[in-house]
Simulated scan of single mutants.
Amino acid sequence: MSFEKAKTFLDKYRKEHPFVFYFLLTYLGGITLYLIIFFIWFADYNSPMALNEVGDFLAGAFSPIAFLFLYLGYRQNSEALRIQAEELRQSTEALQLQVAEMKESVEQQKLMGKIQETELEERHNAAMPFISSQGNIDVSSDLYGPSGQQFKFKIRFDNRSDNEAKNVFFYLGDDNNLPLSILSKNSNRNLSSPLTGEEITKYKSQQPFNREIYVDFENIYGRRFKSVFKLQCTFLNGSPQVFTEDLGMTKYTQPH
Rank of each mutant, 00 (worst) to 15 (best):
M1F: 01
F3A: 03
K7V: 03
T8D: 13
K12S: 15
K12M: 06
R14Q: 12
R14S: 11
F21C: 02
Y22T: 15
Y22C: 05
I31C: 02
I31H: 09
I36Q: 00
A43Q: 15
A43D: 14
D44L: 05
P48W: 02
M49I: 11
L58M: 11
L58G: 08
A59E: 02
G60N: 15
I65R: 03
F67R: 02
L68G: 04
N77Y: 09
N77H: 14
I83V: 15
Q84I: 11
E87I: 14
E87K: 14
L97R: 13
A100G: 01
M102E: 13
Q108G: 13
M112D: 10
G113A: 11
G113T: 13
I115H: 08
E119P: 00
N125P: 00
A126M: 02
I131P: 00
S133N: 11
S133K: 00
S133F: 00
Q134V: 06
N136L: 11
D138M: 10
D142A: 13
L143I: 06
G148N: 03
K152V: 09
K154Y: 09
F157H: 08
R160H: 12
F169V: 00
Y171W: 07
L178I: 07
P179L: 04
S184L: 13
N190H: 13
N190S: 11
G197Y: 08
E198M: 03
T201E: 12
T201S: 07
K202V: 01
K204D: 05
P208W: 01
F209I: 01
Y214Q: 11
Y221I: 06
G222E: 07
G222D: 01
F225V: 04
K226C: 15
L236Q: 10
L236P: 04
S239F: 12
P240F: 06
F243T: 15
D246A: 03
G248I: 02
K251Y: 11
Y252H: 13
Y252S: 12
